[in-house]
Design a protein around this nucleic acid. Structure first.
Lengths: 134, 134
DNA sequence: TAATATAGGACTGTTAAAGTCTGATTTATG
DNA sequence: CATAAATCAGACTTTAACAGTCCTATATTA
């Protein structure tokens, strides 16, 4: 319950690894997967998403791989989750779309109350950066 | 991702409903389910768990039902989650058991870093009570 | 041109969450 | 004392999200 997904975990592990080495250093998905015993294919997809959103830079071809494209202080956990999961971390679906999206409609009584929880959660994830998990 | 389960939502809705009425008032699972359009069977199970842990008192038989057994200020969201899910809200499995439980074993690099996130999350859930969602 | 890397889509398997069904027990009340 | 209405409890089924795999295309270096 309330756990980060494996994909996010894999992403965090990879980003952390990169953040600990000299900026600009290139790593292949293969070596990262091996180092931390993560499924190669899955990690590859995660890195591709991070690349598409400019968090890492990708180099194709033989001596290719990935390198951090942003400073570790600039990448928040919140951003990583949004990029990898394609959604924000939410305590209830209520908050995913407009007001009409709540399955309880008029009778939803926890929307407002949980908003407080949600906002606090947002602060947590928005505040924590890759720098802090090194 | 990172959402509260339906069971927890149902539990929160039910507890909130009770907390808004005079202390000691009895409600049946049936009426609560109807009022908020929740699946009766599921809500019933949730209430039974809350009863077993003394959060609500249950009265069997014809005019039976449930009533709050603790003051709304005494029941934290954290407790509700632990009772209903039978586990704590965790950002990674790492934290569920002893040190050996991490699937990355020696190579887990996010355990310590995520601990910070975990602690902050704990504070959130430990601090928020039923009183605050009324 | 061969080897090695990313890119990306389709697919399958697995698991946890969500929901349902059945029957037993308790108790107020007509 | 029989009945109806409620909790209690466990087994079961369904569903959907997550995790993981597979295949092929494209890019790039040597």
């Amino acid at each position: 319950m309330l756990q980060l997904s494996k994909k996010v975990e894999y992403g965090l592990i990879a980003l952390r690894h990169m953040a600990m080495k000299p900026m600009g250093q290139v790593f292949t998905a293969k070596e990262l997967a091996k180092e931390y015993d993560m499924p190669y294919d899955l990690l590859a997809k995660v890195l591709q998403k991070l690349a598409r959103h400019g968090i890492v830079a990708s180099l194709q071809g033989v001596r290719g791989g990935y390198a951090l494209a942003k400073k570790p202080t600039e990448v928040t956990v919140s951003l990583i989750i949004r990029v990898i999961e394609e959604e924000r971390p939410m305590v209830a679906e209520c908050y995913t779309d407009g007001p009409a999206s709540c399955y309880l409609f008029g009778n939803c009584t926890i929307r407002k109350p949980l908003g407080k929880l949600q906002r606090n959660l947002n602060v947590l994830f928005d505040t924590m950066t890759v720098q802090e998990i090194v």
